[in-house]
Design a protein around this nucleic acid. Structure first.
Lengths: 192, 192
DNA sequence: CAGCCAGACGCTACTTTTTCGCGTTAGGCT
DNA sequence: AGCCTAACGCGAAAAAGTAGCGTCTGGCTG
């Protein structure tokens, strides 16, 4: 039941949501993730704690909402001229972002405070959208395009699994191997 | 820094840990996961809340420890006579257990309350051990054995990814497809 | 355009949880 | 057997979270 843009931008609800989200980001940067509490955030946002509790239920759900926003890709994937190059670039970047300390925190927060798993699903949708965009572009070039579901299984899932369950096991080479496995071993991309 | 068997069995610490863990399991069964609080658990376990806070830090870490225990496999994987059959049986069972409501809760708890990710790594180790056992058995039969790391990537990771990020997307057929992909498309197991 | 109405917020009092300091006890070790 | 450290119990204080009630915003109807 995480709260989201339920009213028009400009309304009071929207203002409250925005200032609370901003307060979370500010305090996280200033005091660190572990120092966050609902009363602290509420004070910074200029609202009363009860408002936060009513809207988000608890700190975890609020952090989950904020984390999902931060995980949203801000641009379509780079165009490197070929499916393989696009996929390799995207995968390496994705792996780097997600396996960073901050990235791992966001993923955990997003998964964590989210009984209905709506936020988790959104994270997956973000990745799927990016992969889809890469696929559409490749199809425009006349390339054979792997299924998005397959890419999620073969590229995204192993990365996430290692990030979540085996924090030490990650490297750029590994990301490259996943892409190679997804596309078949035929000729590794030039430039890599 | 999750607390674990730091002292010998029989010592006071061990008794406290055991009674607290048992209290968690009991209360979870009686009152449900959401009703759990530290004071409640402490009372049930016959210790003071401060003991729990000192030892586990907070409720999430305690639940994480308990969850990992429950995720530990209690028996080696079934022997069905061939690598493919063993792998299929194990995968289907694993998927069922992990995607159940209870299983998902345990996974989330285990991942969640664990800053250093030690418990998460242990979950992965459990799966790796089971796969390893299947592999050793297959090698004894003279079969070619896929790498455990590969199996984690191709079978376990996609299952976990879907369980965590896409709660609706799971079926037994999907589990079977993952195994087929891991072993190559050569002849699906009879009996399936 | 005025006025109504539902939803959201602020405030306050109250309950529960969490922290902290200090004295005590268990159990490992020489 | 006796010491020494780590862990526990207890109680007070601080912090977080809950609940009720009045107020206000802003969308909607007439």
């Amino acid at each position: 039941m995480s709260a989201r843009a339920t009213t028009r931008p400009g309304g009071r609800s929207a203002r409250v949501q925005q200032s609370v989200h901003q307060a979370v980001r500010d305090l996280e940067a200033e005091a660190g993730r572990d120092a966050l509490t609902v009363p602290l955030i509420a004070a910074r946002a200029g609202v009363t704690p009860s408002t936060v509790y009513r809207r988000w239920g608890d700190l975890r759900e609020l952090l989950s909402d904020v984390a999902v926003e931060r995980l949203r890709p801000d641009a379509p994937p780079d165009d490197r001229g070929s499916l393989r190059a696009d996929l390799e670039a995207w995968t390496v970047q994705f792996a780097e972002e997600m396996s960073s300390t901050a990235g791992r925190m966001y993923i955990r927060d997003a998964l964590l405070g989210d009984p209905e798993q709506g936020n988790a699903a959104r994270c997956s949708d973000y990745a799927a959208e990016q992969l889809k965009a890469i696929g559409v572009r490749a199809a425009g070039r006349g390339e054979a395009v792997p299924d998005v579901e397959t890419l999620l299984d073969v590229v995204v899932a192993p990365l996430m699994y290692r990030i979540l369950f085996r924090p030490s096991d990650l490297s750029e080479a590994y990301a490259g191997r996943l892409v190679a496995a997804a596309l078949g071993r035929t000729a590794p991309s030039p430039g890599m």
